[in-house]
C-alpha cells in the first residue's frame, strides 16, 4: 500500500525492516568514504547483528525510515528524525544515500522534502536542524537548495586525513518552509 503522505516524486519513506535493512546497512558500511561523510566516530566494519542492535536501540525515541524508489521499490538509503525537543518543537535530521548510483540525481532531496512535510505538517515542529562536515560539499549544496540556512560552524571539530575540519550547523524554520511551499519550490 502506498500512502501519499510518505511519497515524494522519486522516493517513498518506509518503516524499517529489521532483517533486510540491517543487512543492507552493514553492507553499505563497508564503503568507508560513506562513513566518513556521515559519522562523527571512526569508520569501522559492522556485522548485521550490530546494525540490528543499533536499529532497535532507543527506536521509540527516533523516527527512522528507509528510502525506497517509487520506480521499483529499491532501498537506496536511510533518513531519520531524532533528538526531539518537544517544547521547542525541534528535531535533528540525518540522511545517508548508501547506493552510490543514486548520488546527485535528486533522490536525497526528495526524501528530505518528504520528511520535512511530515515534520511540519504532522509533528507540528517549528524547526529542523542538521549538522554536516565542511568536506561534504555535495550535501551542503543540497541543504542550501532545500532552504536550510547556515547557523554557524563548530571550528575544527573533526580530525580526518591528518587535518581538522569544521562541523557546519544548518536549520530550517517552519515559516521558511511554508514560504517555500507557497512559492512552489
Amino acid at each position: 500500500m502506498t500512502i501519499q503522505q510518505f511519497c515524494g516524486k522519486q522516493v517513498r519513506l518506509a518503516y524499517m525492516d529489521l532483517e533486510a535493512d540491517s543487512a543492507q546497512w552493514a553492507k553499505w558500511r563497508m564503503d568507508s568514504e560513506l562513513q566518513r561523510l556521515a559519522d562523527w566516530g571512526p569508520a569501522n566494519v559492522y556485522s548485521q547483528r550490530e546494525m540490528k542492535r543499533w536499529i532497535e536501540e532507543d527506536s521509540e525515541k527516533r523516527y527512522p525510515f528507509s528510502i525506497r524508489t517509487l520506480e521499483n521499490d529499491q532501498i537506496i538509503g536511510f533518513i531519520t528524525l531524532t533528538g526531539f525537543n518537544w517544547t521547542a518543537r525541534e528535531a535533528w535530521l540525518g540522511i545517508v544515500i548508501g547506493e552510490r548510483g543514486f548520488w546527485g540525481h535528486g533522490y536525497g532531496s526528495d526524501a528530505i522534502q518528504t520528511l520535512l512535510r511530515f515534520a511540519f505538517e504532522e509533528l507540528n515542529l517549528n524547526r529542523v536542524s542538521l549538522d554536516v562536515f565542511e568536506y561534504n560539499q555535495r550535501a551542503i549544496r543540497c541543504y542550501e537548495k532545500l532552504g536550510f540556512q547556515h547557523e554557524g560552524r563548530r571550528r575544527q571539530e573533526i580530525f580526518i586525513d591528518d587535518r581538522r575540519w569544521d562541523d557546519l550547523y544548518m536549520g530550517i524554520l517552519r515559516v521558511e518552509w511554508e514560504d517555500l511551499q507557497k512559492k512552489g519550490k
Partner: peptide
C-alpha cells in the same frame, strides 16, 4: 560564539536561540 540555532529553545512563553561556544 560559534553557532546560533534560531528558535531552538522554548522558555517563558517564547522562542530563544541555542548558542554553541567553543
Amino acid at each position: 560564539l560559534e553557532v546560533r540555532q534560531r528558535q531552538a529553545i522554548y522558555w517563558h512563553s517564547q522562542n530563544w536561540d541555542k548558542l554553541y561556544f567553543g
